[in-house]
Design a protein around this nucleic acid. Sequence first.
DNA 1: ATTCTTACA
DNA 2: TGTAAGGA
Length: 274
Amino acid sequence: MATSEADEVREYRMAELAEKAGITVRTLRFYRERKLLPPPRREGRIAWYNDHHLARLRTIAALLERGHTLGGIAELLAAFESGRRDVGELLGLPGAAASWPAETPVRLRPEALADYFQGEVTPENLSTSLDLGYLAVDGDEIVHLSRRLLDVSHTLVEQGVPLAAVLGAAREVREHVDAIAETFVTLLRTHVLADAMERGEDVGETMEQLRPLATSVVDAELTMAMNRRMRAELGEAPPRGPPGVAPGASEPAGRYGSESPGTYGSAAPGRTGQ
DNA sequence: ATTCTTACA
DNA sequence: TGTAAGGA
């Protein structure tokens, strides 16, 4: 077939990108200086921008329409990219900084979603996300219920995992974790709750105090399980022993955890390689 | 000559 | 944010 208009990764020079985004070249440079736009690919003298930049410019325009200042938008984008910040709070979302230990929601425009999952925002994936309760539609905006989950999904997709596979795994995890939660609730109900009521204690408070224990248990067990699986995957000799007692296998220093959100952050401009 | 940057308004 | 001047 001849080259259809469904382009590959087309690239634009300053003037063309600016025209497509409905801004002047000067403004384009201005955005770039203010870190609102990722650095373009530099080929000697000329700067090449791609559809990612175009999508971002659309997002910026939408945010400006919504009354945000350039500085605020820069903050927002930086927060979204490096993760770990309360975007909902930045947006002034009600309930974003709620006291209860819930996930912080992220409100974003459809263009922004398409920007971060370039080419993977299919009707099927949208449907799955809605079904899982990850996404909800609010007017002309989309709300993701968890900034953390959105960030992880973004990273996985960027590492080459199809979004459909990510969502499939998410569904699996949801089921398993649901069962775990039931285990703990049952445990507390049958052994703790009755005593607390007898002593006239605040039942809700008691539950909330014990709640982090469940998180700790799952964290520890998951860490150990990941260690076992990874060892097996890497072909190392699996120490056949009762689970939980790994001789000399104290926990490795670094966990799977989220101590370094800047995996692809501010260090090098070079992102998804060619 | 073209494309982008720097500097100034 | 527009525009003029200058480097590559």
